[in-house]
């Protein structure tokens, strides 16, 4: 059962989005997040929503999975929307009853915020759905490599990330084993109040730390044996190459931004000052 866990939330597929260069995908995601804050009216926002939907469809990731990624932010979205509805003033008044004042501006801001957050989360989860963790760390390493000028050990950090990902399933296995061992000795992990249950975790966490440190020492030896120095002169088997489709995707996002600017200009801002 434990063996089946997937690292990250990669969804195996063969769509264009899957085949895009991971570096380009990270850049595009950042550009998209910035441009979503450029929208000033419902037309340009609608364009963004349309684009987000298109991305989901093209990726081939089932809608169910996408909805699952929105679930955890549902509370935040509701909360910010409510605050916006009640506190933002301006425009025509809709409700004016005792201490409750709702205005068109408030409703619009709430709608805007909710849509923005949802689009943002959906697009960023599209990145993790269509890119393996390994590709992501490699891409981050490449994108951050200019920081080497400031003596930031980018490749070492990337190696740390890869190792952390690599050891998640191993440690999950280990926790499982230790839990069973402690249960076999009569440890009660499921009953009691909050404090008692936290305390019950100590006999699991301590052996976990001990074994992790032991693993780290062995791993360090193994990496030494394979000539890892952490220094320069390392090559990579998988070279990242930009293809035509990467530039095409960049073009699409630029067109999208142009669309937003044009729609903003034609229809004006929806919020009244």
């Amino acid at each position: 059962m434990i063996k089946d866990i997937t690292i990250g939330q990669y969804f195996n597929g063969k769509s264009v989005l899957h085949r895009l260069d991971a570096r380009m995908k990270i850049i595009l995601t950042v550009v998209f997040i910035v441009s979503i804050f450029l929208c000033q009216n419902f037309w340009s926002l609608g364009l963004m929503v349309l684009f987000t939907l298109m991305t989901v469809i093209v990726s081939g990731v089932p809608f169910k999975m996408v909805l699952r990624s929105i679930k955890p932010i549902a509370i935040i979205v509701t909360f910010t929307s409510l605050i916006n509805i009640f506190y933002v003033r301006g425009g025509t008044s809709l409700v004016d009853w005792r201490f409750i004042h709702i205005t068109t501006n408030g409703v619009f801001t709430a709608l805007f915020m909710a849509t923005r957050i949802v689009c943002l989360v959906v697009i960023s989860s599209m990145l993790t759905y269509t890119t393996t963790p390994t590709m992501l760390t490699d891409a981050i390493e490449k994108l951050l490599s200019p920081l080497k000028i400031f003596k930031i050990p980018v490749s070492t950090l990337a190696m740390m990330m890869t190792l952390a990902l690599r050891f998640i399933p191993t440690l999950v296995d280990e926790i499982d084993r230790i839990t069973n061992a402690q249960k076999a000795r009569g440890a009660n992990l499921d009953d009691g109040n909050f404090v008692q249950r936290i305390k019950a975790l100590v006999p699991i966490i301590v052996p976990l730390f001990v074994s992790s440190i032991r693993r780290a020492v062995e791993l360090a030896d193994a990496m030494d044996c394979r000539c890892y120095t952490g220094g320069p002169g390392r090559t990579r088997m998988k070279q990242m190459k930009f293809h035509l489709r990467d530039f095409a995707s960049l073009f699409v996002i630029l067109v999208l931004i142009a669309g937003i600017v044009v729609l903003n200009y034609y229809f004006g801002a929806v919020l009244v000052k």
């Binding site: 963790p133 890869t162 990902l165 690599r166 693993r215 791993l219 193994a222 990496m223 044996c225 394979r226």
Partner: peptide, 14 residues
Amino acid sequence: GMVFQNPDNQIVAT
């Protein structure tokens, strides 16, 4: 080259 006892502690990539 060297191969160790515990296979989990010598594999570095995902």
